[in-house]
Each structure stands twice: as C-alpha cells, then as structure tokens.
Amino acid sequence: MHQLAYLSVMAKAEKKSGRPVYKTFKSFFNYEEAIRKVLDEPKKTESRFASLGKYLKERGE
C-alpha cells in the first residue's frame, strides 16, 4: 500500500512554479514501453572472454 501511496504522490507532483511535473499519465508511466521491455529478449553482450571460448572450442579443449 505504501508503494501505491508513493506513486500517487509522484503522479500529482508539481514543480516550484506550480506546474505539474508530468503533464499526462503516459509521461509518468509508458505502459507500451514497459511491455516491450518485458517481452523482448535481453540483448546479449559479448563478454571479455568470448574470443577465448571460441578459440578453445576450435581446438577441441
């Protein structure tokens, strides 16, 4: 419940000038982008030892 209260306060946040921080809910939380992040496979990054692994596989060790 505390998370819901915190997010509610953040969504209604205002700048010092009195203007809202988030003009629309989409600028506060982009649902489509969150779904895309969950469904996409994580990008594999080449590790430091990837070339070493390839070398050892070629040699059969």
Rank of each mutant, 00 (worst) to 15 (best):
A13P: 00
P42W: 05
T45F: 11
R19T: 05
V38H: 08
H2D: 07
L56Q: 13
A34W: 09
V9H: 05
K43F: 13
A11L: 10
L56E: 13
S27K: 07
P42F: 11
F29D: 03
A11Y: 10
V21T: 02
N30Y: 06
K26H: 02
L56C: 11
F29W: 07
A5N: 05
H2V: 04
K16A: 08
L56M: 14
A34S: 09
F25S: 02
H2W: 02
Y6C: 01
I35W: 04
A50I: 11
L52D: 12
K23A: 05
E61K: 12
E58Y: 10
I35C: 09
L4N: 03
L7Q: 08
V21K: 04
L39V: 14
E41T: 09
L52I: 15
I35K: 10
K12H: 05
M1K: 03
N30G: 03
N30C: 07
E33I: 02
E33T: 05
R59K: 15
L7Y: 08
L7A: 02
M1Y: 01
V21D: 00
E61M: 12
V38N: 03
L4F: 07
V9E: 05
K44H: 14
E32G: 00
R48D: 14
G53R: 13
T24H: 04
R36Y: 07
K57H: 10
I35P: 02
K57Y: 05
L56S: 09
E41V: 10
A13S: 10
M10A: 11
K15T: 06
F29P: 04
S51R: 14
Y31H: 05
Y22M: 01
E32R: 07
S51C: 11
